[in-house]
Design a protein around this nucleic acid. Sequence first.
DNA 1: ACAAAAGTGTTACGTGTACACCCATGA
DNA 2: TCATGGGTGTACACGTAACACTTTTGT
Lengths: 234, 234
Amino acid sequence: MTNKTVDFYSKAAKMHVATDCIVFGFNTGELKLLIFKRRVEPHSGDWSLIGSFVQVDEDVDNAARRVLKEITGLDNVFFEQSKTYGKADRDEGSRCISVAQFALIRIEEYDKKLTEKHGAYWYRIQDLPKLVLDHDQMVIDALEILRQRAKHQPIGFELLPEKFTIPQLQSLYEAIYQRSLDPGNFRKKVLSFKVLIKLDEKDRSSSKRGAHYYTFDHENYKKLLRSGYNFEVI
Amino acid sequence: MTNKTVDFYSKAAKMHVATDCIVFGFNTGELKLLIFKRRVEPHSGDWSLIGSFVQVDEDVDNAARRVLKEITGLDNVFFEQSKTYGKADRDEGSRCISVAQFALIRIEEYDKKLTEKHGAYWYRIQDLPKLVLDHDQMVIDALEILRQRAKHQPIGFELLPEKFTIPQLQSLYEAIYQRSLDPGNFRKKVLSFKVLIKLDEKDRSSSKRGAHYYTFDHENYKKLLRSGYNFEVI
DNA sequence: ACAAAAGTGTTACGTGTACACCCATGA
DNA sequence: TCATGGGTGTACACGTAACACTTTTGT
């Protein structure tokens, strides 16, 4: 590295880089968000998203995975970058920009002990409390992106258990878009993509007849994507 | 601020934060990108996007506006955040994350003297040279987002002069999506949105009959958006 | 008068939507 | 056997795509 380089970089300011996770979950027909009570100043005790500073030798994406694992115990979670928040005055603690990322997790699988230990709770998105800093805006933006994605990719499967029924899937989409869908049309649409594998087993928890379980056909999905398929679910 | 706070923040690493601009322009029926020859190490002399470090007291969004103004002389440019690049090893100079933002500019209006002074050139997106660091990927991602946006918002108008004809607009969309569109259908579709104002004046540069100039009706666009309208151009 | 681009009209087709209807089963 | 949610079938409306056709005007 030349002296010129050192000079050029050294003149530039350094700042904290954080990542905040908008963690979506789904159960009992409701879209939920994992938030927790902040334990450091400023705003200790207020509600906040789960976040962390990014370490010097750590990819930003990985920082998000690290925190989420610390809190939920979950690995291999679906993550996607949402937006970066870079207003100079967004954090009065110190100049700090935050890369927001949203995660979709199967709510049944996370470790309740861990989340309780960290003071984390699932809230319905409709009745979230006021969050710290610009975290309210982060949630609004992430929801927007989730809706956008869910329209064209079968992203919703990330939020359901391995085995799920079509009515369950429909209920998820209804929760995401906050509107009701026609059962017949939804079923036809979603089956037309040929990315669901029907199982023999049935779920009888919500009707006497029972609804068939399905699993997501990852193989076929990838194949179809490569051949330029577009999944317009809604 | 409590001691606890100081402690918490001070333990976290600080790093450089940069912003890189993917500057799109459009003329002679081609989608162009503004890139320039890098003048600092590492990679001095290689082709690069236009970027800068973010200053301590500067919003990330404004940093992008600042560089673009320095180079093109343009103010009031359409900007949108694209993605943040945060791999630990993305810049060998020093740990540095970059918030990529794309800009749409009216190519006729920029100051040629300024861009020449800074060693900046317009390249057709089809034949861009290899760019420095992860800038190639930034362009790919930004194009993807531009296409996404252009599908649902009349974003394309940002790339055209104040007055433009419908065939011009069509040619822009054809450049963005790299496919040809039916003139009749395109015209019908775009006029159906009621966000174009027809002017008396005609552009005779590309036909004897001449094509009517139109302007974008910002007022009506905002009104329609508020009432929940969706602009599906393609 | 003809070429060439602008602009209009018409029709066929596929897809989404609404809704009627049948199925399976526990109580 | 009836109520309930699962699942199938169908008819209509509408948006889109393809393309034929008309208009304008400089050469």
